[in-house]
Amino acid sequence: MKEKIVGLLFTVLLSCCLMNVSDTLAATETTDVTVSLGNEGGELVFVPNHLEFVAGKKYKIKLDNPSPTKHYFTSKDFADASWTQKVEAAKVEVKGAIHELELKPSAEAEWVLVPMKPGTYELHCSIPGHAEAGMVGDIVILSE
Rank of each mutant, 00 (worst) to 15 (best):
A81P: 04
M116E: 12
E88G: 06
V114R: 07
I98S: 09
E88H: 09
F78N: 00
K95A: 13
A79F: 07
G96A: 14
A79V: 03
T84Y: 12
L101G: 01
V94S: 05
S106H: 15
K95R: 13
V94R: 04
A89T: 10
K86E: 07
A81C: 03
M116N: 10
A81Y: 00
K117E: 06
L113C: 09
A107Q: 14
A107V: 10
A79M: 08
K86P: 03
V94K: 02
T84M: 15
K91G: 11
L103M: 05
K76F: 06
K76A: 11
H99Y: 14
K95V: 15
K76P: 03
K117Q: 13
V92C: 10
A109K: 09
M116W: 03
V112E: 14
S82W: 03
G96S: 08
K76E: 02
E88T: 12
E110V: 12
A90P: 05
E108S: 09
V114A: 13
E110C: 05
S82H: 04
D77K: 02
D80F: 05
E110W: 05
L101T: 13
K86Q: 10
A97W: 05
W111T: 07
A79P: 00
K95I: 12
K117D: 14
W111F: 10
G96I: 04
A81M: 01
E108C: 03
E100D: 10
G96N: 15
F78W: 00
V114S: 08
E102H: 14
K95T: 11
A107M: 10
V114W: 08
D77E: 05
S106V: 07
D80G: 05
E108D: 03
A107G: 09
V94H: 05
E100N: 06
A107I: 08
K104I: 12
A97N: 11
K91L: 14
A90M: 15
V92G: 07
K91I: 00
H99R: 12
V92P: 02
W83F: 09
P105Q: 02
D77S: 14
H99N: 09
A97E: 12
K76S: 13
P105W: 01
V112P: 01
E93P: 00
P115E: 01
P105N: 01
V92E: 09
V112S: 04
K76L: 10
A81D: 02
S106R: 15
S82G: 14
K76T: 12
K76N: 13
A107Y: 11
E102T: 15
K104C: 15
W83L: 15
D80A: 07
L113A: 11
E110N: 11
A107K: 05
K95Y: 10
P105K: 01
P105D: 04
M116R: 05
A89P: 08
T84N: 08
E100R: 11
A109P: 10
K91F: 08
K117N: 06
K91Y: 08
A90R: 07
V87G: 04
A90Q: 15
E108K: 11
A97F: 06
E88V: 14
D77T: 04
L103S: 00
A97L: 07
F78T: 00
V114P: 10
Q85A: 12
T84S: 13
M116A: 07
W83N: 15
L113E: 02
M116H: 10
E108M: 14
L103C: 01
K104T: 09
S106C: 05
K117W: 00
S106K: 14
G96L: 11
P115T: 06
E102D: 13
K76Q: 04
A79S: 12
S106E: 04
